[in-house]
Design a protein around this nucleic acid. Sequence first.
DNA 1: CGCATAGTTCGATGCTAATCGAAGCATTCT
DNA 2: AGAATGCTTCGATTAGCATCGAACTATGCG
Lengths: 226, 226
Amino acid sequence: MRNGPDIARIANLVGDPARANMLTALMDGGALTASELALEAGVTVQTASSHLSKLMEGGLLSLAAQGRHRYYGLANAQVASMLESIMGVAEAAGPQRVRPGPRDATMREARICYDHLAGDQAVAMLDGFLARNILTRDGDRIAMGEVGPSFFRAIGIEPDTLKKSRRPLCRACLDWSVRRSHLAGSLGAAIFDKIVAERWARREANSRAVVFSPTGRRAFEKTFFG
Amino acid sequence: MRNGPDIARIANLVGDPARANMLTALMDGGALTASELALEAGVTVQTASSHLSKLMEGGLLSLAAQGRHRYYGLANAQVASMLESIMGVAEAAGPQRVRPGPRDATMREARICYDHLAGDQAVAMLDGFLARNILTRDGDRIAMGEVGPSFFRAIGIEPDTLKKSRRPLCRACLDWSVRRSHLAGSLGAAIFDKIVAERWARREANSRAVVFSPTGRRAFEKTFFG
DNA sequence: CGCATAGTTCGATGCTAATCGAAGCATTCT
DNA sequence: AGAATGCTTCGATTAGCATCGAACTATGCG
C-alpha cells in the first residue's frame, strides 16, 4: 500500500514534542514570532529555528516577515483540523484518570484555547448564536448571520473592524473535550477579550482554565444566551 | 501550552514509514495478520511485531486472536478519521503532480474510509439527507430525522437493528478531499454494504478506491439524492 | 509426538536527528 | 556608526530507535 499521500512524513513532523507544542500554540489561526514559539516549545531559539524550517518545508506553516520579526502561523485550516483530529485520538487514548478533580470540571466549563474561549460555555455560546441566527453554519463553515452585526455592535464588538484582520472572522474549532465546536477566529478572540474586560471571568495562573465568577457567569449567559 | 492531549506521542507513532504503511493498509476497515502487515510495511515479521506492540500500546489498534493467527485492525473510526486528515494534509503539501491521473479522480469521487463511503458522492449523499430531513444536524451531531426511519426501511436498512450496536448510529466524518463531512457510524457502514450488495460499485484491488459503474452511479444517485 | 507455521522477545548494531554553543546575517534604534 | 535585537546557519555531541538474526513460545497438522 505505497500509493497515496506520504502520511509518515507529515506525522513525523508533528511527532516531535517541540514541534507539536509550537503547532498547538498556533492552532487558533494566529501567528507568533520564532522567539515566542521557542518559548512555547521550551527550546532555544536556534533549535526552534531548525524545527520551523522543517515545518515550513513540510508545508505546515505560513510565514509573514515584518522587519526582523518573522511571524509563523499554520499554513491553513486543514492543518489545524488535522491537529485537532490527532488531539481527539490522543485524548481518547490517554491515561485514564481515576477520578475527575476540580481542575477538570473547571477546564471543562471554560478554558482558553489560545485566544478564544473553549469548553462547555463556549460550545453553548456558539450553539446559541446559531440558534438565533447571529451566526450561521453551512456544513463545516461558520459565517456571520443576518442579525449578527447588530448583535455584536450592541455589545461593543465591531465586526467590520475584525474583518480587516488577516485571519478568518469565524472559524469552528473542535472542542476535543466534548467533540463539538466552539468559536475561534478573530470574533472568538474578541469575545474572549470582552469577557476579560468585563471581569466576568479570569484566567487562572499557569493554567488554561478560565474561571467565571457567579455574577460573571450570569452576565455572560444573559448576554450570549439571551 | 503543555496542557492537553499529547499529540506528539500519537503523531510519532504514525510518523514511522513502516507503521504508517500498516495503518494505511488497515484503513479499509478490515483486519490483517502480523505477517501480512509485515509484508505491507516491507519489514521482517519481528520488526513488524515490535511496531504493532507500540501501536497497541498507543491505542491505535485492536486485536483479535484466532489460534495462532493474530488479526490487527484499527482501534476505531476515530483513528481512521485522523489518518484521513493526515492524508489530506500530506496530499495538499506533497509534490505537485503534473497532471491528475485517473486514480485521483476515482479516489475523489468515492473511496472506502474505514467501513463507510467517502469522497464527493458520500458528501453529496449526506448533504442530500440533511436537505430532505432524513438526517438532521445539530452542530457536530447528526441524528435520524423525521422521515429517516421510513426512508431507510424502504431501501432495506433497518435503523432499529443498527441502534442495538455499541457504536453510534450516525457520525460526521470529515472528508479531507473537500473539507466537508460524510456519514460514518453504523448507518454509514450499512449504506456501504448496500452499495456493494447491489453491485452499484466495487472495490478496486489494492486500493481504497470505490468505483461506480455507470448504471450503479445512476441507481445510487436516484436512491440517495432523489 | 514431531514438524511446520505464526508470532513474540531479546540483544547488538548503526543510523538519524534533536540539541545547543558559537558564529554570522538582517533589521531596528539611538 | 555602533549597539541591540531577532533570527538563521554551522558543526559537534549523543540519546533514541528501527532493524534483523537468533532464540523462544504458541498453535495447528499429520
